[in-house]
Design a protein around this nucleic acid. Structure first.
Length: 560
RNA sequence: GGGGUUGUAGCUCAACUGGACAGAGCGACGGUUUCCUAAACCGUAGGUUCCGGGUUCGAUUCCCGGCAGCCCCA
């Protein structure tokens, strides 16, 4: 039984079948309040029209003392709970035994589509792409750990006017050798050259680009072949970055995939009287919801993102019938998502749509763009991260692979440890921090516990007698034990809020508690009786940290 | 003009969605390696949570009104 259930039973015992609602027991904010605190007596006071202290007293009486060493009512009606070490030992044993470290498999049988990263084809990835990729991937991993069947989809920007410019540029701005060894860098180069020419006064180049685009849209064989080649090369390049970051997609369905479904969507919108003509365009009026107006077909007959995203929802619902679709994009798109979510609902698609917006990354206070000239390529960042990590790692005989684990881990952790909603101003030193609240801090704690277990001749043996911890009276032991029990809850909270930062924060706190324990409590040199259970506790810490890091997509090397 | 969002220690951020004395990291100052990895640990200093009202036993959190930054839409 969980503490929540135990406490809820006490409430029920004290107040019968009254509507009590969910009872929640939280870790105590201060050791002097015991191990756990419950504030629900205060919340119930109004409902029951009773003095909160009276309520708390009744509940305290009803609480099963088999689990609690001490129960106190404090202040206006807080319940302060101190658990028995027998309960603690049993709970730890259960956690250690669990194949999934206690993470509830609440997603079993449910399907989720998660849409993230989504860079534009024919461009190199830059630091602005880190957030969607890394946050999206962590959410992906977290939901999988809860038992969900997750489909990770990369909604590439692989269609649109830029391809007219690219095709023209490819044919006339690149030399034979560049065309033979086509890279994304070359594509980028010819795009820039071609786009510059398209701005010339006479408009000749621009018209030519447009002509190429029209040919592409009409299915011209040569242009289609080129377009496919561009996409293929782009995905190859993206995957090179993704493999460094430990990111893997199930599907790469770009905007082009939904092209031929757009007409049908518009037709349906008109049929349902949702879309109406306005100044030559077709719009859906969402003024009532204060969401303005969404254009679903422009006056020139072209479609836009709203239409394409609706087609995408339709396609996903028909193919997968997911419970939820999660989109991880920057927060500038909030209005757009609110609009098409609303329209999708009106169209009757039975799926929960979730937008996870994150604050845009800037550099020295300015938006990241080619025009600002502050576009740091992702590859450059990762190389620098590796280089800096290697400087330190080599002193201890670490190799390049270790430098990658640490360097990339640092980059990812920096992003994941912040609430997605906060905007980040990129800074080399912060992005690559190796101490304090950083990825390497966690990796270091993990390596140390691995080393400790190895010295004891144990490698993550979950059959260790953790139950013996009942004999351990050290406060630091209890503190660590209580903290480890919070792991499943941290994973659940991170999922519910779509914030990997909650898990990152938990892991950092846990590693801090372990580091303090490690510093102050002897393990290998303690009495035989204490040694085995302390080793078991360390082993469990190692497992929790490893699993947690895995959910964030960060490597956990055994040695540093 | 309308809408969104953010404002917390010198700096970067937390605060489990309304709980007890607002916590971490960096930076500053001081201490700890004949002892399981010092990328660590322990301690000190640092706060009118942007301002003003309101609701509540209780507000960084919710409501109203300002101010400032960023973003989106005409």
């Amino acid at each position: 039984m969980t503490l929540n259930e135990i406490t809820e039973n006490a409430f029920k015992k004290a107040f019968g079948e009254l509507e009590i609602g969910e009872i929640k027991v939280l870790p105590a904010t201060d050791p002097k309040f015991g191990d756990y605190q419950c504030n629900d007596a205060l919340k119930l006071a109004k409902k029951l029209k009773m003095n909160p202290r009276e309520i708390a007293n009744k509940v305290a009486e009803a609480l099963d003392r088999e689990y609690f060493e001490k129960v106190e009512v404090a202040g206006p009606g807080f319940l302060n709970l101190t658990v028995r070490r027998t309960w603690l030992a049993q709970s730890l044993a259960n956690l250690a035994k669990s194949q999934v470290l206690g993470i509830p498999q609440s997603g079993k049988g449910k399907k989720i589509v998660i849409d993230y990263s989504s860079p534009n084809a024919a461009k190199q990835m830059h630091i602005g792409h880190i957030r969607s990729t890394v946050i999206g991937n962590a959410i992906d991993r977290i939901f999988r750990s809860l038992g969900y069947d997750v489909i990770a989809d990369n909604h590439l920007g692989d269609w649109g006017t830029q391809f007219g410019i690219l095709i023209k540029g490819y044919r006339e701005c690149l030399n034979d050798e560049e065309r033979a060894n086509l890279t994304v860098a070359n594509l980028e180069k010819c795009y820039v050259l071609s786009a510059a020419k398209a701005k010339e006064e006479d408009g000749v180049w621009k018209d030519a680009c447009r002509a190429e685009l029209v040919k592409l849209q009409q299915g011209d064989e040569a242009n289609i072949a080129l377009w496919k080649k561009f996409i293929e090369i782009s995905i190859g390049e993206f995957e090179r970055m993704y493999s460094k970051l430990g990111v893997k997609f199930d599907t790469y369905r770009g905007e082009s995939y939904y092209n031929n479904m757009m007409g049908g969507i518009v037709e349906k919108l008109v049929q349902m009287n949702l879309a109406v003509e306005s100044e030559g365009a077709l719009i859906v009026n969402l003024e009532e919801e204060k969401l303005g107006v969404a254009i679903v077909r422009k006056s020139d007959g072209g479609f836009n993102y709203t239409t394409s995203d609706l087609a995408c929802v339709k396609s996903r619902v028909e193919e997968y019938d997911p419970e939820r679709i999660i989109y991880v994009t920057d927060d500038r798109q909030k209005l757009h998502f609110a609009q098409f979510f609303s329209i999708s609902k009106k169209m009757g698609y039975d799926v929960k749509l979730v937008h996870v917006p994150f604050g845009l990354m800037s550099f020295q206070g300015k938006a990241i763009s080619t025009r600002e000239g502050n576009l740091i390529r992702l590859e450059e960042l990762l190389a620098e991260a590796k280089r800096r990590a290697f400087e330190i790692v080599k002193e201890r005989g670490g190799d390049e692979q270790l430098a990658e684990s640490i360097g990339y881990g640092a980059v990812k952790y920096t992003d994941l440890s912040h609430d997605p909603a906060t905007a980040i101003d990129f800074d080399w030193d912060k992005a690559l921090a190796l101490d304090g609240n950083s990825g390497p801090y966690l990796q270091y704690a993990h390596a140390r516990v691995c080393s400790l277990l190895a010295k004891a001749g144990i490698e993550n043996d979950s059959s260790l007698p953790i139950e013996n911890i009942v004999q351990d009276e050290a406060p630091a032991t209890k503190r660590l034990a209580l903290q480890l029990l919070e792991f499943p809850g941290a994973v659940v909270r991170a999922a519910e809020a779509y914030k990997p930062s909650i898990l990152a924060d938990y892991l950092h706190e846990t590693a801090q508690i372990y580091s303090s324990f490690y510093q102050n409590i002897p393990v290998l040199k303690s009495d035989e009786a204490l040694k085995s259970s302390r080793l078991a506790l360390c082993s469990l810490f190692g497992e929790v940290l490893r699993k947690g890091l895995e959910l964030l997509g960060i490597d956990a090397p055994n040695r540093i």
